[in-house]
Amino acid sequence: MILQGNDPHCSPSFSFGHRLRRQAWNMVYVLLFRPSPRPFHAWRAFLLKLFGARLGKGVHVYPRAKVWAPWNLELGDHVGIADGTTLYNMALIRIGRYSVVSQGAHLCGGSHDYNSRNFQLYAKPIVLGEHVWVCADAFVSLGVCIADGVVVGARSLVTKSITQPWTVHAGHPARQIRLRTHHLQESTS
């Protein structure tokens, strides 16, 4: 998918086939996905699946969510992707069941090697566990895995994986600020 050793100043970073596929998706996004009414979640899921997304049941992807490459998207059952979210999935983005990515959040699966002569583009997957909430305007960087039940606070920056489940993280960079206890109360009741 990503060409190696190219000169990004005068040549593309992706193969012709990939660029063609992206243009087809961009046209479908602009003409059919983006203008669809908010409650038409099944329609948008159909369009994403048409381009290779793997989606569970009850997925709600809102019309102003930006998905860079549907073929690199995997959403579990009952996942919500809000308006204004950016899923820059140059590599796989996998989001577990019952997770929510809120307005303005950015999951960024690609970057550049600023030490390479050609500013080489590269990508790494992002994996969110189940029951994860990425709050409004948070940024999750490439290669990050987030454990089940984690909340990433609004406007937080996540550059490293979060391995402790059922915790709340916030800040720049995000750090653990508390535990989530709701799941503990349910399991002891």
Results as ranks from 00 to 15, higher is better:
residue 97 R to D: 14
residue 83 D to I: 03
residue 125 P to Q: 03
residue 136 A to L: 11
residue 85 T to E: 09
residue 7 D to F: 08
residue 114 Y to T: 08
residue 150 V to W: 00
residue 168 V to L: 14
residue 127 V to E: 08
residue 74 E to G: 07
residue 2 I to R: 00
residue 136 A to K: 07
residue 181 T to H: 09
residue 31 L to Y: 13
residue 151 V to G: 02
residue 173 P to K: 12
residue 70 P to F: 00
residue 166 W to E: 00
residue 95 I to S: 00
residue 45 A to D: 07
residue 120 Q to D: 07
residue 61 V to T: 12
residue 117 R to A: 15
residue 103 Q to T: 14
residue 187 S to N: 06
residue 59 V to Y: 05
residue 144 V to T: 06
residue 76 G to I: 04
residue 52 G to H: 04
residue 55 L to G: 02
residue 38 R to D: 10
residue 38 R to C: 01
residue 95 I to G: 02
residue 107 L to D: 04
residue 138 A to T: 12
residue 9 H to T: 08
residue 21 R to Q: 08
residue 74 E to K: 05
residue 129 G to Q: 08
residue 137 D to C: 15
residue 115 N to R: 12
residue 56 G to M: 04
residue 38 R to G: 05
residue 81 I to A: 09
residue 180 R to E: 06
residue 187 S to H: 09
residue 68 W to Y: 15
residue 129 G to E: 01
residue 71 W to E: 15
residue 34 R to A: 13
residue 101 V to H: 12
residue 125 P to K: 01
residue 162 I to W: 02
residue 121 L to D: 03
residue 179 L to P: 02
residue 32 L to G: 14
residue 33 F to R: 06
residue 55 L to H: 05
residue 129 G to I: 03
residue 186 E to R: 11
residue 42 A to S: 13
residue 47 L to G: 05
residue 52 G to L: 02
residue 15 S to N: 01
residue 120 Q to H: 01
residue 124 K to W: 05
residue 183 H to Q: 10
residue 1 M to S: 01
residue 179 L to Q: 15
residue 60 H to Y: 09
residue 86 T to E: 10
residue 33 F to G: 00
residue 99 S to C: 04
residue 63 P to H: 15
residue 44 R to N: 02
residue 21 R to F: 03
residue 105 A to F: 10
residue 185 Q to E: 13
residue 101 V to D: 08
residue 135 C to W: 08
residue 167 T to K: 10
residue 106 H to K: 13
residue 181 T to L: 10
residue 71 W to L: 04
residue 106 H to V: 12
residue 176 Q to K: 15
residue 39 P to R: 00
residue 187 S to Y: 11
residue 118 N to E: 03
residue 22 R to T: 11
residue 129 G to S: 11
residue 40 F to Q: 06
residue 137 D to G: 15
residue 159 T to L: 13
residue 97 R to W: 01
residue 186 E to T: 07
residue 158 V to D: 14
residue 67 V to I: 15
residue 62 Y to E: 15
residue 117 R to D: 10
residue 165 P to M: 04
residue 22 R to P: 05
residue 55 L to N: 04
residue 10 C to I: 12
residue 121 L to I: 04
residue 16 F to W: 12
residue 134 V to P: 09
residue 73 L to K: 01
residue 18 H to W: 08
residue 150 V to H: 04
residue 109 G to E: 08
residue 12 P to N: 03
residue 7 D to K: 04
residue 90 M to H: 10
residue 174 A to H: 09
residue 172 H to E: 14
residue 189 S to F: 13
residue 93 I to W: 01
residue 7 D to N: 13
residue 81 I to D: 05
residue 19 R to A: 06
residue 122 Y to F: 09
residue 74 E to Q: 09
residue 90 M to I: 05
residue 149 G to W: 02
residue 109 G to V: 01
residue 157 L to A: 11
residue 173 P to H: 10
residue 45 A to G: 13
residue 163 T to I: 14
residue 79 V to D: 07
residue 7 D to I: 03
residue 3 L to I: 10
residue 24 A to K: 13
residue 40 F to R: 10
residue 132 V to K: 12
residue 178 R to I: 03
residue 6 N to C: 08
residue 64 R to L: 15
residue 140 V to W: 09
residue 76 G to E: 00
residue 118 N to M: 01
residue 166 W to R: 01
residue 52 G to N: 07
residue 118 N to F: 06
residue 127 V to L: 11
residue 88 Y to F: 14
residue 139 F to S: 11
residue 18 H to P: 00
residue 151 V to C: 13
residue 183 H to F: 06
residue 180 R to A: 12
residue 88 Y to D: 13
residue 16 F to K: 07
residue 49 K to A: 05
residue 22 R to W: 09
residue 40 F to G: 02
residue 72 N to V: 04
residue 128 L to V: 07
